[in-house]
Every structure is written in structure tokens, then in C-alpha cells.
Design a protein around this nucleic acid. Structure first.
Lengths: 138, 138
DNA sequence: ATCCTACATTGGACTTTGTCTAAGTCAAGA
DNA sequence: TCTTGACTTAGACAAAGTCCAATGTAGGAT
């Protein structure tokens, strides 16, 4: 993830303590935090960081294509640092946990031109729904 | 859609004027209103209907499997009356318009067991993103 | 036809999630 | 080290949705 900080500096990003901790929080596999969760974890390292800055920074990272915004349930959006590998999501309907998955097949090519209604189609998201192991047991 | 009212009555639903107008608003093809839009349209016929009742009724219809809840953008959820025909969605990234589409292929069978991580997978949603004809021109 | 009552509706307060702004702060180039 | 424009902050605001106590009513019972 320090690659990330390098890339951003290269793009003229001013490197502040706040942006650094937000980037650090997002480091890791299978991390899909909400903005508030990012804020809570960032606050552990930098107590005075504000919610507005977390929102700003997440928004910038999304615009730069470094992270993905995922909204699977109409509640808080989640942020997915795994933006450089094509993947989709498996969501637990009970607890909201998200796993990255890589299905076979190419859903984009499955949408024939007659089913595009004149849209310029730029991307596709596949969301699998189910119950995760812990919630199945409970 | 009057089938709908019959079905619901058969399930012991108490049939009120409010529930009737909500069901009527949702009648039609390619309708994907937000709760507030449903409320606005219902108010035209029944001015005193409250937001809470619209939310309650939509929630009940979702539980009964008569309509689908779609959240494509982290903003307001939309409600899709086309619950009895398998389909997916094509969303305009600019104006939020939704079209129902029927891609080829079966994404569920594209998710191998090793990619299910112990989840009980119950469903899948495919969301195509793009720009609709009117927004492309503008 | 009228009565009862459990279920439905209402308005408004409240919560969650996110945005905006004006004033203060600071990273990094000169 | 100085300067400056970009960054951060706290708190007000907004949008979407939930909850609750009081009131109303659909539809079965009489």
C-alpha cells in the first residue's frame, strides 16, 4: 500500500498525516469498511481526524481509481481497496459481510446489443447474495 | 396488478385505501420509483397518505416477494414490481434511470464452489453501468 | 346494520449517512 | 524560513429511512 502513497504523490497529491492513515486503514485483503468504520480505525491512530476529511479522502481515492465504492444494501457505502483486480462480491444478507469473488464467464459479453437500449455500457457489477458460515450456524 | 390485490387479500392482507394506491402506483412496466416518488404519486390520488405508510407498505410487499428492492447507487432505494420475471438492471450513471434487461448466461452457475467460501448462496444481481441515450447526447 | 378490536395509519421526533462552509492549519516549493 | 494555495476542522445542514404513541378503520362477529 505504500505503492499507493507513492503513486498519489506522483500525481501531485499533498501527503498529509490524515490521508496517510486513511490509506493505511484501507490496506489489507478483503477489507470493505464503511466510511464510519474507516473513520473509527483512523481515529485510533490520529484521534483528531474529522469525519469530513475521511469522506473527502475516500472520495478522492475513488476518483483516482485507487479504491472502489460498493453499495450493496442501501445502507452505508463500503470502500474496496482491491480496485486493480477484476472481481465481484458475495454479500451476507444477515450481517453484511462482503467477500471478493472471481466468477467464471464475462457478464458484459452476455448482454446482447438489443438488450442495451442505446446505452453506452461501461461496466458491470455482479453481487451474489447469501448467508455466511457464521450466520448460517447462528 | 389487480391479481396482486387478490393475492394479498388471500394472504390475509387487510385491504386499505392506502395500500391500494401504493399497489396501483407500482403497476406498470419498467417502473423503478424511489419511496419518495411512490409517495408523491400516491399523494395525487390520496393526499393524506403519510410517508410512514408508504415505507411500511413497500416493506411488506418486499417481504411478501411481490416487489424487489434495488439499491444501485447508495442513494434512495428503488422498488421494482417486476419480481416474478428473472431479470437484471442497466443503470445510467448520470441520471440514475434503470432499465430491466435479460442477459444470456447464468451467473449463479458461474460461481464455483471454491469461490463460495462456505456461504449458502441464494441469489445474484447483475448491474450493468453505462450512459443512457438522453444523457449521452446532452 | 352495528359493534368490536386487532391491525393500519398518522405526524412528528429521531437516527443514520453524507455534504457543505467558513475559518484556521500546514506541506512543500522558492 | 517564508509563503501560499491546498488541506483540515467543527458543526450546521440535508436526504433517506425508522420508530412511536395516539387515532382511525376493515372486516368478522352479532
Amino acid at each position: 500500500m505504500s505503492d499507493l502513497l507513492e503513486r498519489l504523490r506522483g500525481r501531485g497529491w499533498r501527503l498529509t498525516a490524515q490521508r496517510r492513515v486513511v490509506a493505511e486503514v484501507l490496506d489489507g485483503d478483503h477489507v470493505h469498511y464503511t466510511a464510519d468504520e474507516v473513520h473509527a480505525r483512523a481515529s485510533e491512530r490520529l484521534p483528531e481526524i474529522s469525519r469530513a476529511t475521511v469522506y473527502n479522502t475516500l472520495g478522492e481515492l475513488v476518483s483516482l481509481g485507487e479504491i472502489l465504492e460498493v453499495s450493496t444494501d442501501g445502507r452505508a457505502k463500503r470502500y474496496d481497496p482491491n480496485a486493480h483486480h477484476d472481481h465481484h462480491h458475495l454479500v451476507c444478507s444477515r450481517c453484511g459481510t462482503i467477500r471478493d469473488v472471481r466468477p467464471a464467464g464475462d457478464p458484459l459479453s452476455d448482454l446482447p446489443v438489443v438488450e442495451r437500449f442505446g446505452f453506452t455500457v461501461t461496466g458491470v457489477e455482479v453481487t451474489y447474495r447469501g448467508t455466511c458460515p457464521s450466520c448460517t450456524d447462528a
